[in-house]
Design a protein around this nucleic acid. Structure first.
Length: 339
DNA sequence: TTCCCGTACT
DNA sequence: AGTACGGGAA
């Protein structure tokens, strides 16, 4: 693209952002005049960091309404994060999914204190050394917390660039090169926030709003936007699971996962079809659907009362469960209870 | 490349 | 009910 066209594209983008961007998101106004009252003592880089990790696989709405403020109230800085118990962190993350993110948050806090004196570095290469921070998040923190003139590519920006330059299946290196080509060095912060918003609000996967897009004049995909980028198919698998409320003296069996799946989180005893044996003392409570990754799961739920305690599980009172990090799958099962 | 998790959309 | 979606790690 020619130099003057790039300049025009950058101007169009910032003009659109001024009018239509999500400019009041709390993590975009840390340490500014418009800073949310609840965040006035939150370090800017820390607040940006937490927002970026939460937003990695989650909708803005959910982060904004349910997780961002409560998490920062409990863990207001890197040091509280570093000292926090894993279980408390997981509890604060309950429902967000991808729980390794919050375990990495604590790990990275310790690494940051060890390596960088407890201050998040401003260089993407240093940020990338921290657990859970990859190329995108490193760039986003550098730019949004420290105004560094860096370009980076997330899922939204990937779609915007793929269409703008008509790239069906560009790799990360090509996309980053394109992102640098159009990067506005005079206002990287607003430029990058605007790109994210174009991806989230205009350049949608389905039915993009090309008519209001500030890139329209320059977009190589404007007549067939949905052809870019080429989408990959997910092969779903059906899975039948069996969950048992095992009761002993008004206590209920739970187990902490040691596997990659739900690591550190608790679940009620959960069995694959091959491991499950229906016994006469089990009562059927109902079933529900759940899904993660490529699995479409149907969970059948049973209740069993034990005469002798087993060492396979921890037993807790119902009222204790509200302090324990439980997967959404287990919480859904809890809804079926009426015994 | 595949696995994490859960929600949103149709 | 079926499908799409997403950063980082292994």
């Amino acid at each position: 693209m020619q130099k003057h066209n790039i300049k025009k594209l950058q101007e169009n983008l910032l003009f659109w952002y001024e009018k239509n961007g999500r400019k009041s998101l709390p993590w975009r106004n840390l340490k500014s005049l418009k800073c949310d009252e609840r965040l006035k003592d939150i370090d800017k880089a820390y607040g940006v960091y937490i927002s970026e990790i939460m937003l990695q696989q989650t909708q803005v709405k959910s982060v904004l309404e349910r997780f961002y403020f409560p998490f920062l109230a409990k863990f207001p800085n890197l040091f509280t994060l570093a000292e926090a118990k894993e279980e408390e962190l997981l509890k604060a993350w309950q429902g967000l999914g991808y729980y390794s993110r919050v375990r990495n948050l604590k790990k990275a806090a310790l690494e940051c204190i060890e390596k960088f004196g407890g201050i998040l570095p401003k260089e993407p290469e240093k940020l990338k050394k921290l657990s859970g921070i990859g190329a995108y998040t490193a760039g986003a923190i550098a730019c949004f917390a420290y105004d560094q003139k860096v370009a980076f590519v997330d899922g939204n920006i990937r779609r915007v660039l793929s269409r703008l330059f008509a790239l069906k299946n560009a790799n990360m290196k090509e996309l980053e090169s394109k992102a640098y080509q159009i990067l506005n060095l005079n206002d990287a912060f607003n430029h990058n926030q605007a790109l994210l918003d174009i991806g989230a609000l205009v350049c949608l996967p389905k039915n993009p709003k090309c008519g209001v897009c500030p890139f329209y004049d320059f977009c190589k995909a404007k007549f067939n936007p949905e052809s870019y980028p080429e989408n990959k198919k997910i092969l779903y698998e059906k899975l039948n699971l069996f969950l048992v409320f095992i009761e002993y003296k008004n206590q209920i069996a739970i187990k902490k996962s040691q596997e990659k799946l739900y690591k550190g989180m608790y679940n009620f005893p959960l069995f694959k079809e091959s491991e499950f044996k229906l016994t006469k003392n089990m009562k059927y409570l109902g079933e529900f659907k759940h899904s993660y990754t490529k699995y479409k799961i149907n969970v059948k739920v049973y209740h069993q009362i034990l005469k002798i305690k087993t060492k396979d599980y921890e037993f807790k009172e119902f009222k204790e469960l509200k302090h324990i990090p439980l997967s959404i799958l287990s919480l859904k099962a809890l809804n079926l209870i009426k015994f």
